[in-house]
Amino acid sequence: MSLFEQIGFLFTSYDIPAAFWVNIQLSFWAAIGALVIGTVLGLMRVSPVPSLRWLGTSYVTLLRNTPLTVIMLFLVLGVWGQLKIELAPDFNTNFFLFAIVGLAIYHAAFVCEAVRSGINTVPLGQAEAARAIGLSFLPAARLVLLPQAVRGAVAPLGNVLIALIKNSTVAAAASVATETSSVMKTMIEFNGNMTVLIFMIFALGYVILVVPIGLLTTWGSRRLAVSR
C-alpha cells in the first residue's frame, strides 16, 4: 500500500474525527467546570477571610500535586466502584461525566493559580488610586481592578486550556474508551506495521488543536496587555 492508500484505509476503517470530537467535548465541559471552580477558588484565596483562604490554598496544594491519573482512577474505582455514586444510569455517559469531573477539579487548581496571578499583576497603586477618587469596594473592583486582572490572566488561562486539551486523553483511565488515546491504541494493536503513521495522524491532530490556541492567547495577551 502506498502512503495515501494507508491513510485512506485508516480513515475509512476507523472514525478518527469522532475520537477527536470526544476529546473536544470532554475538554469543553471540563474547561467550563474548571473555570467556574477555579475562579471561585481564586477569589477565596485573595479574600480577607482566613477560613476561605485556607480552604482555597489546601485545595490547590492537594489537587495540583496529585497526578491526574490518580484522580481519574480514584473517581472510577473509588467513588463509583466503592462509594456507589453514579452520575448517570448509562455506563458510557456515567464514565464520560466522571472524566469531565476529574479533568475539571484537577485543572481548577491551575485556573485558581492563573486567576490569582492575574490579580497579582495589578499594582497596589491602582487600588489606592481607585479608593482615593472615592470608589468603594465593588466599583473599585468592577471598574479598575478586575478588568486589569482579567487581562493579566489571559496568558496563564490559555496555557491551562492547552494542558486541559492534552490531558483529556487521560480520560482513558476513567474507562472512556472512545477518546483518542484508546482509539489510537486499538488501531496500533491491529495495524502494527503502521504504528508511526497512526501516531503521526493523532499527533498532528493535537498540533492542529493546540498550536492555534497558543498563538491566540499570546496574541490576545499582548493586545490586552496593560502597558505600565
Partner: peptide
C-alpha cells in the same frame, strides 16, 4: 449489556463485590 473495561480481573472483582 453495559460493558466496563478494567486493566485486571482483580479490579473487576472489587466492583463485582461492591455491586456496581
Amino acid at each position: 449489556v453495559n460493558l466496563l473495561e478494567q486493566p485486571g480481573y482483580a479490579d473487576c472483582v472489587t466492583v463485582l463485590e461492591s455491586g456496581q
